[in-house]
Design a protein around this nucleic acid. Sequence first.
DNA 1: TAATAAATGAGTCACACGTTCCATTTGCGA
DNA 2: TCGCAAATGGAACGTGTGACTCATTTATTA
Lengths: 288, 288
Amino acid sequence: MGLGGATMDERVPRDFETLRATILERRQSLPKRIAQIAAYALDNPDDIAFGTAASIAASAGVQPSTLIRFAQQLGFDGFTSLQQVFRERLRERNSSYDERLAALRAKAEEGAGHRAIFDGFVAAASTSLSDISRTLNEPHFEEAIALLAKAETIYVLAKRRSYPVASYIAYALGKLKIRNQLIESAAGLNAEMVGFATPNDAVIAISFSPYAPATIEETRAISEQGVPIVAITDSSFSPLAQFAKVWFEVAEADFAGFRSLSATMALAMALTVAVGEKRRDTGRKRKV
Amino acid sequence: MGLGGATMDERVPRDFETLRATILERRQSLPKRIAQIAAYALDNPDDIAFGTAASIAASAGVQPSTLIRFAQQLGFDGFTSLQQVFRERLRERNSSYDERLAALRAKAEEGAGHRAIFDGFVAAASTSLSDISRTLNEPHFEEAIALLAKAETIYVLAKRRSYPVASYIAYALGKLKIRNQLIESAAGLNAEMVGFATPNDAVIAISFSPYAPATIEETRAISEQGVPIVAITDSSFSPLAQFAKVWFEVAEADFAGFRSLSATMALAMALTVAVGEKRRDTGRKRKV
DNA sequence: TAATAAATGAGTCACACGTTCCATTTGCGA
DNA sequence: TCGCAAATGGAACGTGTGACTCATTTATTA
């Protein structure tokens, strides 16, 4: 009776996510002070896990008894059983990303098997993604998008290791119906292709150390025609950087002598789709 | 005096790593029961963080007082201050990989800016890597390596979205001096190229839904010549699976309609390098 | 506005907690 | 073997804990 019927009809949330969902769902119908605790609990789950009822109540600005009523209203016996859920969350939480990566990499480096090779590449890719996510220069990103969005034709320029990225960009641009030209080396007509570019176009050039001479040379040539260049490379000392209007420095981790492409790929895809979106927004779409 | 001088000359470890190092360093010189707790603490740090002195002591098979002596010997006031270090560890531990990803994805989905697009692709790539790392079929992986390692020529077959992966495999195989042939569509001579393959060769075929008809057709043709096929695809119902001797099911996350390539790429690189290593081991290298 | 129920604050209590103390055992050198 | 100090086990203690109860305030309904 005294507990407002909450004890009998509800099943008690055993895991944090269910608990969270339950709280959010009932948020509107909770009394003021109870809601106050509910908000505090979701905002400071660690405090709930470690604190005492008194300390938590004080931090949340309520009485300890309110905290217990909150727990009971959710179907728990009392504060202690509620706290268990918050502790379980910390317990079951996977070890940190860095710890996991370090483990993968350690396994890859000392372990000899083929699985270790696989783990090594996964670790390298994850590291690269994590790095670029942290270090991406947003103003440069916006500038590159703007620059590419107003291009009539986007030329894509990359050889050897970077070529897969270029071919993917070309594929994605095509799907987005953005006119583009992949500068491949096959036919030996690159110089002529490059010659068609005008300042109204734009170039995405990709090259990593050791920089393919052909990429450098073609980039230089095309920049002399006044075509704006977006470069994706691995250092600001890259020969590509001097020709580029905007450049991205992407640090890819490597394994077994092969560098990852995951960060470059993610950046390339993001650039491509962002350009597509920008064009749609500004009504300049379908230049094909 | 009574505490053996441990209280005065040592600085108290404030973070878990220091504490861990300190314990490992002194391991030899610790009394039996204290060492017993020390081992337990390093093996079950979560229990130390959440348990009571009594429950921990019971789990470790010692008296509560011993637990406190252990803490004091490390320079702490008592068990409580030791416990703080173990709790701090859980607190400061980065949020879990999944939580971080979820945050990235949430930002990407609700947020509108270009940065959100980038985050979306990074999240998709990370998810894909995480998935494949968990689900990779190791026996299949070994089988594929064995199969490819004994091939005279490795044919690489992929179109459209999968083409960048194929081009990277071809590049890497080339660098490893493994004879390979990329089946490109440019010249329209694919059927003839495919015709050269023999049962002593092998094929890596990559295709994802919607499966490029050309890839399916060429895979079928080449399989009829008795050439063993390793397929990388997205489902066991894939048309590629029926022709393949070994196939990998790779679930790539997508963003904005573009699926990630990171997992496929990692698998492809691992396959390639593993094949290279296997060849070196078995002395069959340099078929070029 | 009055009557009633819900929500809240505050005081109380039993108890489990971390800690201390002391008796006993163990290890070690003479 | 003896003697001493370190290590250990176990009981006792005082504090702070979570939970309960009840008086008071606030919201709701007639």
